[in-house]
Design a protein around this nucleic acid. Sequence first.
DNA 1: TTGACATAATACCATTTGGTATCATATTAA
DNA 2: TTAATATGATACCAAATGGTATTATGTCAA
Lengths: 106, 106
Amino acid sequence: MDNRTQNAFRALADPTRRDIVQLLSSQDMTIGQLTDQFDMTRAAVKKHLTVLSDGGLITVETRGRERINRLEPQGMAPVLDWLRYFDQFWDDRLNSLKEAVERKSK
Amino acid sequence: MDNRTQNAFRALADPTRRDIVQLLSSQDMTIGQLTDQFDMTRAAVKKHLTVLSDGGLITVETRGRERINRLEPQGMAPVLDWLRYFDQFWDDRLNSLKEAVERKSK
DNA sequence: TTGACATAATACCATTTGGTATCATATTAA
DNA sequence: TTAATATGATACCAAATGGTATTATGTCAA
């Protein structure tokens, strides 16, 4: 049982959590800042952050009374590894992904 | 609300369903054949197949009294598209993914 | 036509999930 | 020191989820 893979996939299964990941990709944020972006309580956002943390997708740094939530890029690795299992099935949408990465790395 | 993306991520969130996807990647299978691979009832497997179908990851072809479950590679596209959003965050595990695809396409 | 086979559908159940409300804790600033 | 701020923790709830058992439907073969 690969818990890292399971926890990462589980973390990405909820739309609010995927939105949080996108928000954190542009900027580190506190729970308070994140909560402002959603129509739910801070406690609910906190639960989502716990699931994201369990999934290895974010890390938290305490700074004074604030806690900075930060995207952990390596956390996506188990997901990418699992997807690679299906090389032979992917269509050219994956090729465009590949090309985008190539453009970036130039 | 992008239901395709949500349904695909949801479909991949369960370990049994990911196992089913892997099994179907090597061979099309009926429910009966799939059920043999798991320690659960046919009804439970059927539910997972419904979720996978909702997620666009499999298609079903009726052949006589059998129903052949087949992997639908394009179904992974919404997931890949979403992941591409994070180009700038990915580490070299993505590069190795890119390289694997390049090797294949030669 | 009848029985066996392959599957679908439904009702039901325990647990998990996503949310709220409330209370507790720690830090900053006046 | 005390009040405001930022967050954590807990109890609780409704709905979704993952499973079973049971019943129904359609197809193949003798």
